[in-house]
Design a protein around this nucleic acid. Sequence first.
DNA 1: AAATAAACCGAGCATTTGCTCGGTTTTTTG
DNA 2: CAAAAAACCGAGCAAATGCTCGGTTTATTT
Lengths: 232, 232
Amino acid sequence: MNFATLPRGFHFDAFRRISPVNEDSLWDIIFARNAHHITVKRRAPALANLQKIFSATFCLANQRGFGAMNLRDLCRESGLSMGGLYGYLQSKDQLSAMIEDVIRYLCEQLPGWFDHVSDTTDQVEAILRAHIYLSEMLHPWFFFVYLEARTVPTAQRKQAIAAELAIESHLARLLGQESRLSNAQDRLLAAHAMALIQDWHLKRWKYRREKISIDAFADSVIALVRARLTGA
Amino acid sequence: MNFATLPRGFHFDAFRRISPVNEDSLWDIIFARNAHHITVKRRAPALANLQKIFSATFCLANQRGFGAMNLRDLCRESGLSMGGLYGYLQSKDQLSAMIEDVIRYLCEQLPGWFDHVSDTTDQVEAILRAHIYLSEMLHPWFFFVYLEARTVPTAQRKQAIAAELAIESHLARLLGQESRLSNAQDRLLAAHAMALIQDWHLKRWKYRREKISIDAFADSVIALVRARLTGA
DNA sequence: AAATAAACCGAGCATTTGCTCGGTTTTTTG
DNA sequence: CAAAAAACCGAGCAAATGCTCGGTTTATTT
């Protein structure tokens, strides 16, 4: 990991340049994490088709919803046949499960990327920025997970909930080291921070329309959290 | 309207007591706004069945998603028959459209409830509090709208987007009167405020689990926005 | 209480949907 | 280039789904 090279208050371009996970490297991770049930074993066609399948899924599901998308639409949009598709998944539900899984995995990794940052407030800032920037690079993935979390099986949903709570607790603990707020207030501030960063992928249409850049957005979130920490 | 009787920094109980719209009065509004296509004309059974239908819809759709809910499930859960159901709607899609419509209608009304508040920062606070408290009283409605907005027809979705932008612009304008921030920063702060209040109905499970009351939540949101307005 | 109107029921229709599997094409191996 | 393996295709099946409509029950009117 080379996150240590990032300066304080890094912005999107800097993060994107050094991030080991991005729009292109993601297919490798997906392929590895689902190797046990993907019957296609050759790497080259697998990566290409995974890209087709998930791109098509986001194109359809992020518009009408996963439940309203059917597999014939998905075949037309992805260019694969019904049989071809089923070389990569065992059921329609597994498609959403795969998406949910990889995003949760990344979100679990993320806080650890900044363990080296000594100043705790700076560490909070780094985690929040990384989260926002990652959700920008993988926008359709985060958007899907957020709006379709209910469709995955119960066991997996519980994992996802636990993951979200873990990040939040981590943030709350860091905030608690520097703030003059109560524990309860620290937890609430952490929850608010989560809501703010998730707003980037949830309402990207709005920010695009108002020509608000991701860096302006991230700076604003950071300013808000810092104001609460240092303010009256 | 008797919102003028609310004190500064009012809390949930006070709001609930005087609010003309709540869990019980909602059925009247729904019935009135959809009278043209509801074939059941007698008031008493109509209100009772609307309640059954929407309660069942939330029970099913807020768990698995609207697309995954089918009308046979809905009949079983609501106690109505297929034919009976179709006295209240012309298609499955219209069901989500009715929900979307009434919530958008209420959100358009809401800011006007506090035109009488002279101090602009207090007016912002009142609007934010009212939004949070309303989404508490009508939790399943707000939750559904937020997660299923994509399923409604395009024309209606555009109305919904316009409504959200209108509230946000209203907030930004009010914030601009009192803040030392730039216009762009005011707009971002308004957007953040929207994200924070929507977090209440989106993540209510989390706040319930951590035993965070709605008043503690609202106070924390207000504190965060005020800190940004007055702080460094 | 009879007559009229309103509301409700639920089996059945046409279509859609998730998924399979025998056959075909493409790629790799020897 | 021939043989073997891997990948892909898409028609077809069983089940599910949105919706209708003729008949029945319940409520209102006179």
